[in-house]
């Protein structure tokens, strides 16, 4: 990605930033001029990823964060304000999946998915909106919240039913927040991204290491092949930047065209 300063001097918080889409998005936002606070619950991966990005000489910091912990969100936001003075971008990216038919779904695993994928996005968004409203000099308040949903939030994918349920909730939570902020005459924009078949540590866990090596698994993807975290990071930068100042409550699907052929429920 070329450095065009598309999010120059903006302050961003990214959850699930240690690996995959969160890591690629943190890197892209940094390269386009933002200050990024990388957060994750996985301390060793977060430290490794933070070191890799801070070695680029860009404005980055890291913080452990359990997205389901309301107090922890308060601590993060207080720190962001203390260190950088404002918040412009929140990428709610942290998420988990479990592989099971719904009839066999383990309830603890189900609750964990709902807590992280749905409640984590709710808590993060709420904290970010309150923080953005307090940004000095912005009247009306402004900012960009980007929620990571999935094509599983738009279509049903068998064997990850609980994940699909949570991601559909993220998609509609996004729209509800977008309308709520808009109706308050604010310029806090809230959008969701819907990746499909993207190779990350999370999807490798679901499908296994070999899945992404076998072209036969993408026969049904119109563009062929799988997506990479950088594909999603490009969309994050666009939605975070003022280029998307008229975009709120929108869904952006990045799936090689797969959802077009998953029935006609567009």
């Amino acid at each position: 990605m070329a450095n065009l300063g598309r999010v120059q001097d903006m302050v961003a918080v990214v959850t699930g930033a240690a690996t995959g889409i969160g890591f690629a998005s943190s890197k892209a936002l940094l390269e386009e001029g933002a200050t990024v606070v990388m957060t994750d619950i996985d301390e060793s991966n977060l430290n490794r990823s933070y070191k890799e990005l801070s070695a680029l000489g860009l404005s980055v910091s890291s913080s452990l964060l359990d997205v389901t912990d309301e107090n922890a969100w308060q601590v993060i936001m207080d720190r962001v304000i203390k260190d950088y003075g404002r918040l412009d971008i929140l990428l709610n990216n942290a998420g988990v999946v479990s592989h099971s038919l719904l009839k066999d779904q383990d309830m603890d695993a189900y609750q964990r998915i709902v807590d992280i994928n749905v409640n984590g996005v709710f808590l993060g968004s709420k904290s970010a909106i309150l923080t953005m409203r307090a940004n000095a000099g912005d009247d009306p308040p402004r900012g960009s919240i980007i929620n990571m949903s999935s094509i599983g939030g738009q279509r049903a994918i068998q064997t990850v039913g609980a994940y699909c349920t949570s991601k559909a909730a993220v998609a509609n939570l996004t729209k509800a927040l977008a309308i709520e902020c808009a109706e308050k005459r604010e310029f806090i924009r809230v959008n969701s991204i819907h990746p499909g078949n993207t190779k990350t540590s999370m999807t490798e866990t679901i499908y296994g290491d070999e899945y992404f090596e076998d072209e036969a698994n993408y026969k049904s993807v119109p563009l062929g092949g799988h997506g990479i975290p950088e594909d999603v990071a490009e969309a994050v930068v666009y939605l975070a930047s003022d280029e998307a100042r008229m975009v709120t409550g929108s869904e952006l699907t990045i799936d090689g065209g797969l959802s077009v052929i998953l029935a006609g429920r567009n």
Binding site: M1, K175, A178, I179, A182, T198, P222, L223, G225, G227, I228, D231, E234, A235, Y238, E243, A244, M246, V247, T248, G249, S250, E251, L252, T253, I254, D255, G256, G257, S259, V260, N266
Partner: peptide
């Protein structure tokens, strides 16, 4: 801005997508 994103290689894994640029009008 949206057209340029979709037209560029930044959107290399994006096809068949309908992208609203509508200040939230289509979200409710």
């Amino acid at each position: 801005n949206g057209i340029l994103y979709l037209a560029s290689d930044a959107a290399r894994y994006v096809t068949g997508t309908i992208f609203r640029i509508d200040a939230g009008r289509g979200a409710d």
